[in-house]
Amino acid sequence: MQKLHRKQQQWMPIAFLAPAVILFSVYVIFPIVQSVWLSFYQWDGLGEKIFVGFGNYIELFQDDQFWTAFVNNIYWLIFFMLAPPIGLLLALFLNQKMMGIRFVKAMFFFPFVISQVVVGLVFSWFYDPSFGLFNKFIELFGFQPIAVLSDPNVVTFGIIAAGLWPQIAYCMILYLTGLNNLNPDQIEAARLDGAYGWKMLRHVILPQLKPATFIAIVVTVIGALRSFDLVATMTSGGPFGSSSVLAYFMYEQSIFNYRVGYGAAIATVLFLMMDIYIAYFLWRMLKSEKA
């Protein structure tokens, strides 16, 4: 009996893992390798694959469209970083007890629950040059109306603002949970020592919110690099590719232009950018696991 058990203990964990591991390998791990491999070929998706070495990458780095998308991704990364601090401010604002506050918090979280496609539609309507609320608003301050989504100079920022809406909601929820789990003794002690307001926040509260901040930054970076849905629904990368990001540029090249090898090279660049953050996240996660 005991022996059968030891045997079971050896193969059971493998049996439990097998379905997940197999499916995950087929659909996630293996495709990554395949995409990187494909990026060294010229391929239209159907015909013969022609090995071109680093040809796709050399072309990529000379392609203006690539640099536009790349710079836009950097803008996404920079401006998306507004989400954690604004989310924190909202969380501080809403962390009170009053009638209906649960409902209010839920409603503030609302934009994160709805599909990005819907967020895109909502904001297209919001930005509409002839009747959108955005232009009504800036007219109040005496500005000329701006066609946000058809002006190459501002279009990316318009889309990023739309993306910030759900992202701030997400960060707010992370911080609300963090604020709920603060250590009350430390706060009381700090209050007795005369700490309040900004000083309290800076030296007592923020250190305790570190785990929430970490997660907020990770999900925000990932969100910024994954941006696709909003670009696709609001502008399709236009006007003239000025609002494209790497995710959308890759999709466009592979699906519409049948440049699959080239698309794979774009995906690989995006993947490498993401890897920096993935590695950092894993390192943090596994470190805390050992402690």
Binding site: F24, Q34, L38, G45, I266, F271, L282
Partner: peptide, 23 residues
């Protein structure tokens, strides 16, 4: 097992585009 666990976490963060063509 830690390696496997890390693989699941990492895979969850990759950009969809790197999976698109093979999938």
């Amino acid at each position: 097992r830690m390696g496997l666990f890390a693989t699941f976490i990492a895979g969850n963060f990759v950009p969809f585009q790197i999976l698109m063509i093979p999938v």
